[in-house]
């Protein structure tokens, strides 16, 4: 799976870091998302999809998404 983030749209809610801290991080100065791993392994897929679904700014895109997570 391939993950991309949009730092312009991000509102620093921190939901992604709470859900998958090994894939997403936050900039110290304003909490905006930083991607630690743009090709997470398949065993991280569920959490990464959950993070994308929870993002209030819809700033996370996941390609190779096989299932819908709310």
């Amino acid at each position: 799976m391939k993950v991309t983030v949009d730092q312009e749209s991000c509102v620093a809610s921190g939901q992604c870091v709470m859900t998958a801290a090994d894939v997403f991080d936050q900039r110290d100065e304003d909490g905006i998302v930083e991607l630690l791993e743009d090709q997470p392994t398949e065993d991280r897929a569920e959490d990464v999809r959950q993070a994308a679904a929870l993002c209030p700014a819809r700033a996370i895109r996941v390609e190779g998404q096989s299932g819908f997570v709310r």
């Binding site: 620093a12 921190g14 870091v17 304003d30 909490g31």
Partner: peptide, 11 residues
Amino acid sequence: RRMVTAPFTIK
């Protein structure tokens, strides 16, 4: 908003 988000990061 971005001026006040720093103290609210998960870390």
